[in-house]
Write a protein that binds this DNA or RNA. Sequence first.
DNA 1: CTGACTTTGACCTTATCTGACCTTTGTCTT
DNA 2: AAGACAAAGGTCAGATAAGGTCAAAGTCAG
Lengths: 153, 153
Amino acid sequence: MGSLADFIEAYLKELLSGAPEGIIEIRRRELADQFRCVPSQINYVLETRFPFEKGYLIESRRGGGGYIRIMRLDWRTEEDLFSELSLLIGDAIGSEKAEELLVRLVEGRILAPREAALIRGLVEQSIGAVVAQQQDELRATLLRNMLIVTLRG
Amino acid sequence: MGSLADFIEAYLKELLSGAPEGIIEIRRRELADQFRCVPSQINYVLETRFPFEKGYLIESRRGGGGYIRIMRLDWRTEEDLFSELSLLIGDAIGSEKAEELLVRLVEGRILAPREAALIRGLVEQSIGAVVAQQQDELRATLLRNMLIVTLRG
DNA sequence: CTGACTTTGACCTTATCTGACCTTTGTCTT
DNA sequence: AAGACAAAGGTCAGATAAGGTCAAAGTCAG
């Protein structure tokens, strides 16, 4: 235990925990030098350890004065809920299943009725933009993302 | 972290925010001296940070007594905002345009930086679910929906 | 020994900065 | 009035400085 990626992850999380806004900025090259690895290793860590689904947002800029910014979205609920949600939603979900899930979340007081309505509206409206074949996949992605941002502070 | 261009941009925006009409005038040579750079660097900043799409107009005059005037275009009423938003977003929007719009909304104090980051993340993340061809359309739909929801509180 | 996770490196795209050279405008001289 | 000169600003190509992508190679637990 303790791959290089783990160390870099730990280091970044350490920095994040000391950042008042939950936002840090790094320079890829510097960090790579610090850990004696190639720069793309940093991207690997970001992709695997700080993805959107785990509650992080990444922004970056190239060119002179470039940087990578990592933002942590704060939790309002426990992590278990999210992993279960991801599991329930999966890669694709039909509208009936999605509706069932939303109802259950409202009943379980996880979502306020208004929030559920909002999410339902957003998801179903946005789905019109895509051909039928892909609708279930898109619904899954949207639903998951919306729930994550709604349930996070 | 911040490139020279970032500093000049910040300085000009500072000036602009203190200008009652949202209009300032500078002299290229002076500003370049102030930041110890070549004059053309100023043009670079103007082109990249204050283009029309981001809500600015530039006027200038050469020769003795020359100047560069920067004007910020504001959204005066909520109606302006919404109609221009739907105009700007349209049926399809590429990621660069979407980004410009979000930045402009933040600068115009219409969106908080975190809200913009969240919307950006949500939209771009969700887009992965569909084929490239449809991405611009989906981006437009999502962006419009999210902005409407966010701005209506 | 196999599949998932890591690590690396070659190649790509984008942003910034500078300097040489060009155009426009104002002013002064004759 | 014409021409010369000075004082601005404009353009563009090239050098430099980041970060991104992707596939191949390495590693390790089961």
